[in-house]
Design a protein around this nucleic acid. Structure first.
Lengths: 230, 230
DNA sequence: AAGCAGGCTTCTGTATACACGAAGCCGCTT
DNA sequence: AAGCGGCTTCGTGTATACAGAAGCCTGCTT
C-alpha cells in the first residue's frame, strides 16, 4: 500500500475490525452498492456491521484520506460524487504518471528487470487468445507494477499504485470489450519496443496514449449506462 | 488540501481537537522536534495535549495517511524514518509531477491565466533583490500552484499539492542560500519563456531541471548538518 | 551460565457514555 | 401569509472504560 497503514492485505476475515469495515465499504462504494452522494451515518453503519462507532469512524477517516468519501466537519460524510469530468481527470493523471514511470524505467531498469518484463509481456499472448478478462486484468496490474518498480524510485511507485487503486475503485465493471483486450496488448507491445530501443521518451508517449485509450474505452462504457446521479 | 478532510486551513485555535493535534504533530515532526523513529504513545500524547486518546488516534491516522508516521497494527506508531534516499525519491517525484503540470498548463492555460502567471513572476523580481526568503517562499508556492491550476485538471492539481506538502514537511530549514534565490528566479524565467513560446515539452524539461536543482541544493544542506542518523 | 517458558505489564483496539454543534420544525410576530 | 427566532432532535466529537494482544522481565530448568 501507499499509505502508512500496515496490515495483511485484503484478507477479509480476521484482523482489525476497522480494516474489515473499510474494505467492506470500499467494495460497496466501488461496486455502486452505495450510491455517490449517499449519507454515511456512523451509528447506522456500526449497527449494520455489528460493531461500535469507533472502528466505523476510523474506517471512514481512512476512506476520506483515500478520496472515496468526503467528510464535512460535524456534519458527517457522504460517498464522494464522481463526475465523469473528475474520472477523466483521474485517468489523465494516471496516464501522465505512468508515462513518467515508463520513461524513468526505460533508462534505469536492470537487464534482469527488462528480461522479467519481456517474460511477463510474452505471457499475455495466450491470455488474449483465450479472452480471459480476469487473467488479463491480473497480468496488466503486474505489468504496470513491474514498470513502477523498475523506476527504482519507491516513492513514485507508491504514488502510482495509490492513484491507480483510487481509480480502480470506480471502474466497477471493467472494460470487457474483446477488441480492447487485443489492442491493449498491441499497445504494450509498442511500449516494449520503445523500451528495448532505450527510447524513454517514445515509451512515455506510447504509455500515455495507451492509458488514454483505456480511459476513452471506459468513458464510452460509462456514457452508455449512466447510473442516476450527478 | 488534497485529502477529503474539510476544515478551515491551519487556523490553530478553535476547531476540531483532532485537527489541532494533527497540526501540532505535523509541525513537531517537520521541525524535527520529534525525531524520526520516535515512538508515538497515544496515552502519552493525549496527556501532553490535555486531551483523551480518541482525538490523538484520529490525528495519528491522518498523519499515517499523509505518510508522516507509520502505524504497525497493534504495535503503535513511529515517526516515519526519512532516509536521504527517500527524500531524493520524493524530490524526483515532485519534479516529474511538476514537469507534467507545466507541460499541460502550457497547452491549456487561458490568456488570462498566462497573464496572471506573468504578473506573478514579475512580482518576484523585487523580492529577490531584497533577499526576502519568506516572501520568496510564499511567492514560489503561488507560482507553482498557479501552474497546477492552469492544467485545468483539478485532480492532478490536488495530487501535486499533496505530494509537495508532504515533502515540505521535511525541509525544516529551507534552502536559505542567497545565490539559490536568484538562480531559482532565473529558472522560473526560462520556464516562462518556454510557456510564452507555447513549447510545453521545453517548459517541462526546464521545470524538471529547476526542481532537481532545488533538490540538490537541499540535499547539500542536509548532508552538511545531519541530525542523528538513520 | 544460558536458554526457554510463563506470567506480567503496557499499550492498542473496541465499546460505551456524555456533550456540544448543527439542522429541521414549530410557534410567534408583523 | 410570510419571515424570523427559539426549541427539539439528531449526529458528530470527545471522554472514559474494558478487553486482548505484543513485548518484556523474571524465574526455572538444563
Amino acid at each position: 500500500m501507499a499509505s502508512g497503514f500496515e496490515t495483511e492485505d485484503d484478507g477479509d476475515d480476521r484482523g482489525l475490525l476497522s480494516d474489515r469495515i473499510r474494505n467492506a465499504l470500499t467494495d460497496e462504494i466501488a461496486t455502486g452498492t452505495m450510491a455517490a452522494g449517499a449519507a454515511l451515518d456512523e451509528q447506522q453503519l456500526a449497527d449494520r456491521f455489528g460493531a461500535s462507532r469507533t472502528p466505523v469512524r476510523e474506517a471512514l477517516r481512512q476512506l476520506a484520506a483515500g478520496g472515496l468519501v468526503e467528510l464535512r466537519a460535524r456534519r458527517g460524510g457522504v460517498v464522494a460524487r464522481m463526475t465523469p469530468e473528475r474520472i477523466m481527470e483521474m485517468f489523465e493523471t494516471v496516464a501522465e504518471i505512468e508515462a513518467v514511470c515508463v520513461r524513468l524505467a526505460t533508462y534505469r531498469m536492470t537487464p534482469l528487470e527488462r528480461s522479467h518484463l519481456i517474460e511477463l509481456h510474452d505471457l499475455s499472448q495466450p491470455i488474449v487468445e483465450a479472452g480471459d478478462f480476469d487473467a488479463y486484468d491480473s497480468f496488466n496490474r503486474q505489468f504496470h507494477e513491474a514498470i513502477y518498480h523498475a523506476t527504482h524510485n519507491g516513492f513514485l511507485a507508491e504514488q502510482a499504485i495509490a492513484v491507480r487503486n483510487r481509480l480502480n475503485a470506480f471502474r466497477r465493471t471493467q472494460l470487457r470489450q474483446g477488441e480492447r483486450l487485443r489492442r491493449s496488448r498491441d499497445e504494450h507491445e509498442a511500449i516494449m519496443q520503445a523500451i528495448a530501443e532505450g527510447d524513454g521518451e517514445m515509451a512515455s508517449r506510447r504509455m500515455r496514449a495507451h492509458m488514454l485509450n483505456a480511459a476513452t474505452s471506459l468513458s464510452r462504457f460509462i456514457e452508455t449506462n449512466k447510473p442516476g446521479g450527478v
